[in-house]
Design a protein around this nucleic acid. Structure first.
Length: 604
DNA sequence: GCCGTTTTCGGCCCGACTGTTTTCAGTCG
């Protein structure tokens, strides 16, 4: 199986660090880093692009040289230059640059003067007090290195957006209450709604700098003050989250918000636009010499650069500028657009709350309809349903419809896809259901080709409505299946099977990149919570965030439809699917051939 | 190493903080 895009990107990014250690031209280093970023965000598999003449060279930041290196990596798992460099700078050394406070310059110095090439040697030298002797180091640096090592050994790295959400809002609310503070915004990747965040960036205007910094560094949640200055202070909270606060002048608030929201790449593009006009853009404003052109609001800055305001979720320098200039920025979906949650569990299987409580919960959120989707029998430990239990469930659903008027309840089931792609329920029982979600919960380590065939077979079943958490990943715990998403999304589009954005914060599956890809290939998208308790119905926002980052609008998402429209569409799809159920082998083959024909390039 | 409705050569974003310096390098975002 070919290397994933992320793995290719990793080779480039490590190679970039090696070049830095080697004292290479900084722009050459940047070229590799930029390429790693582009590849990491690319939806289409590089293995495919590598076979197409000139396709790699079309990617931004990829020229002749890097294209060849990508082909090398895809075919052999590495590239000669990387292997060569590894002899000089071992990977453990490269990884030292990931420690806080250590960059390539210091790591190089450590390596060349003390022969330190991994974390173990670094820790030993720091403990022995040998670092302080080096130029540019001192006692404080030595202590800092030890602390970074300690953090690196325990910290999981990034925190789930959902974990930071309440902490961030509570902290912002406390800052807002300070005397004469005017505006408080949480910027950074938090505002761009990335699924995980590294730290929080708080922007504050108004109030006195000293008072704001005092309150911030003495907040109840703060366990450590990492730095304190006139415009910026950094702290670590009890939750482990690092928070930077910036106190900015009000006339600069928009420029600062823009700057600290990022992404870095988006900002660089904006700066270039400013330079083209002979201006300069920084966190204090858009200026021409001494003269301030814009800065009070983000809109003002964008307008001055001849752009409409771009939603933070799209600021990844992955096509948003082209859309903005063409006046084609999507009107992103909002949580209030959703009319239903179509993936909910009850205590009949592994949920915590009763059927009636879940339906009431959905109704309380203002939904017009919902689907109850407990597990099927192969998940035995959850008490999953077999055919007999499904028939019993028909009566339970009818009862809850009577008990809770004002919301339509679809009788659904989350049916397991068995190892060979068959469904974990007989056709007769499936026919009793209004909404059939299919999902993989077993054999997640299947080889890619086998796993893909398994999913494709399941998608072909005429009773299937949607596929839940298609990649099967758990953020920070499980990588997800090695699937050929291009083929799966195309098949889903053909069969009218919706692909789910599962809003459980540690799933977010489909993620933003996959969701964009699925949509581009014509698959319809549904956003669900997979709630196992009433309280989890609020996870919907995290699914909406992924959809927004994917550039999806209300029209692109199935469960924004009014109930009647949803039912009409589902009816039409079911008819179409049944009509061409089980395509004969030759037909399947020719369809596959058509698929491999020239693809539209992804916007990423 | 990439890129080019001025350019195939000569550019490539910019400022704050820390810790070490006594004018600045390294790191970070």
């Amino acid at each position: 199986m070919a290397l994933s895009n992320a793995e290719v990107a990793r080779v480039f990014s490590r190679y970039a660090t090696m070049l830095e250690l080697d004292g290479a031209n900084v722009f050459r280093v940047r070229a590799y880093r930029e390429a790693a970023r582009v590849l990491g965000e690319l939806a289409e598999p590089l293995a495919g692009l590598a076979k197409e003449e000139g396709a790699l060279e079309e990617l931004p930041g990829i020229g002749k040289d890097l294209a060849q290196k990508i082909r090398d990596i895809v075919s052999s798992g590495t590239m000669p230059a990387f292997e060569e460099m590894k002899k000089k700078y071992p990977l453990a050394l490269v990884e030292l640059t990931e420690l806080q406070g250590l960059g390539p310059k210091r790591v190089k110095l450590l390596f060349e003067t003390l022969g330190i090439a991994d974390r173990g040697a670094l820790e030993a030298a720091a403990r022995a007090g040998r670092l302080r002797e080096l130029p540019g180091f001192g006692e404080k640096m030595e202590a800092k290195v030890l602390k970074s090592l300690a953090i690196a050994s325990q910290v999981t790295g990034r925190m789930l957006l959902a974990g930071a959400w309440p902490v961030a809002h509570a902290l912002a609310a406390r800052m807002k209450k300070l005397p004469s503070v005017e505006e408080v915004e949480i910027a950074g990747s938090f505002r761009r709604r990335r699924e995980t965040i590294g730290d929080l960036d708080l922007l504050v205007t108004g109030g006195s700098t000293a008072a704001v910094m005092d309150a911030f560094t003495h907040d109840d949640q703060v366990i450590e003050v990492l730095g304190r200055g006139d415009t910026k202070s950094s702290v670590r909270l009890a939750s482990g989250l690092q928070v930077d606060l910036r106190h900015v002048p009000r006339e600069s608030f928009g420029a600062a918000l823009l700057y600290f929201t990022g992404s870095k790449e988006h900002n660089i593009e904006l700066r270039k636009l400013a330079i083209e006009k002979g201006w300069s853009l920084n966190e204090y404003g858009l200026t021409k010499g001494e003269k301030m052109i814009a800065g009070r609001t983000e809109e003002e800055v964008y307008r001055a650069l001849d752009l409409p305001w771009i939603p933070p979720e799209l600021r990844e320098s992955s096509g948003e500028f082209e859309l903005a200039r063409a006046g084609r920025l999507p009107r992103l979906i909002e949580e209030s657009d959703l009319k239903a949650d179509l993936h909910m569990h009850t205590d009949r299987t592994d949920g915590k709350d009763t059927l009636e409580a879940m339906v009431r919960g959905a109704k309380a959120r203002g939904y017009a309809y919902c689907a109850i989707t407990d597990h099927s029998k192969s998940l035995a430990m959850t008490g999953g349903f077999d055919g007999a239990r499904v028939r019993e469930s028909v009566r339970e659903i009818e009862a809850v419809r009577r008990a809770v008027p004002g919301i339509a309840v679809l009788h659904g089931l989350e049916v397991d896809i068995l190892g060979d792609g068959a469904l974990d329920l007989d056709d007769e029982s499936l026919a009793l259901l209004d909404w059939v979600l299919i999902a993989i919960h077993s054999r997640l380590d299947q080889p890619g080709a086998e796993a893909t065939a398994r999913v494709l077979r399941a998608l072909d079943h005429p009773r299937v409505s949607a596929m839940a958490h298609p990649a099967g990943r758990l953020i920070g715990a499980r990588k997800g299946m090695d699937l050929d998403f291009e083929r799966i999304f195309r098949r889903a589009a053909e069969r009218g099977v919706a692909m789910e954005i599962n809003a459980q914060p540690d799933r977010t599956d489909l993620n933003d990149v996959h969701a964009r890809h699925a949509h581009e290939l014509g698959a319809s998208i549904v956003i669900d919570t997979d709630a196992h308790a009433v309280s989890q119905l609020e996870f919907m926002r995290y699914g909406v965030f992924a959809a927004r980052r994917a550039g999806l609008t209300r029209e692109d998402v199935l469960n924004t439809r009014a109930l009647e429209d949803f039912q009409r569409e589902q009816g039409a799809r079911a008819t179409r699917r049944t009509a061409k159920a089980k395509p004969a082998k030759p037909a399947a083959k020719s369809a596959a051939k058509a698929n491999s024909a020239r693809r539209g390039r992804s916007a990423r």
